[in-house]
Structures are given as structure tokens and as C-alpha cells.
Design a protein around this nucleic acid. Sequence first.
DNA 1: TTGTAGACTAATGTCGACG
DNA 2: CCGTCGACATTAGTCTACA
Lengths: 79, 79
Amino acid sequence: MESDAQLLNAVAIVLRKLREERNFSQEYLAAEADLSRSMIDKIERRKRLPSLPVLIKIAGAFGMSASELVKRIEIDLNK
Amino acid sequence: MESDAQLLNAVAIVLRKLREERNFSQEYLAAEADLSRSMIDKIERRKRLPSLPVLIKIAGAFGMSASELVKRIEIDLNK
DNA sequence: TTGTAGACTAATGTCGACG
DNA sequence: CCGTCGACATTAGTCTACA
């Protein structure tokens, strides 16, 4: 099953890293991405996996493309 | 909302194109990606948007990375 | 500012069937 | 081989509240 746990982990780590690099609060990021803070929080705590539209929104909030964001997740997955 | 309809459309088009390029049947692709044929069918007919794990599985079945697959979707979105 | 959680709605994904 | 669909289970995502 290639373990969703690993994926949850990678997404959480990448998201938090990007957010902290930019000194974004969860609330600010949520507003920029047009998401609830609850969602950001849950992704970072590995309680939820973002859907494709959410990935795109988050990538947009970070000023990058969704494929770039996914690439970072894949890189983290292979560690 | 950046319209989910456009996204549904782009994903459907990219998936079908890749599948037909490789002469994969829906059933074969579903087996390779460890998904139901129903899911492949629904994505191609814009009834469902794939989640991140599903995107990764489909990309794997096509022998490409998820970021590469997402990139193709983004390219199609910008047309 | 973040972690946590409950209750809820919406969407995803499966199985099985039929044409 | 594909389009379609209903019933169902699972997961994503929101809102609210509290430490």
C-alpha cells in the first residue's frame, strides 16, 4: 500500500518547512490559500492529506506551482 | 475558487491522453495503479478528482513521478 | 500562535451491476 | 472495452471552541 503514513509525514514536513521559512503563521497561510486554519493545522499534524485543489491553493500561497510543491514532497518521501 | 470544473477537465484530458498513448485499457491501468476501474472511468469522465495518493499511484503506473503528472495537468490548465 | 477535538458537510473511492 | 449508476464506506475540509 506504499503506506499513507509516509505520505502524511512528507506532506506535513514540507508544508511546515515552507511556512516557517517564510515566517507565515498558520492563520495567514490559511487566508492566503483560502483554506481554514484547521485544515493547515491538520495537514501539519498528519491528520489530513490535502486534495489536489488544496495542493494547488497552498502552492499558490507559497508562490510556486503545484508540481514544484509535489516535487518537494517526493524528494522528502525518498529520504 | 479557480473553478474545479477546469481542474476536473484538465485531469481528465491528461489521464486519457496518457492512457491512450500507451494503449492501456482502463482495466489494465486500474490494475497497475491498484485502483478500481470505476475510479479511472470517473476521473476520465470528470466525475471525480483524484486525491494525492491516487495521483501518485497513477503516475507510477505510467512510469513517471507525481510531480511530472501534475506538471502536465498544469500545462493543460493554462491552455 | 498553535494543538487538539467534536460535529458536521462534502467529496473521494469501492463494488457490483447493466447495456 | 467502455459509459453509467446506485449503494456504500472512507476521507477531506469547515466551523467552533478551549487549553
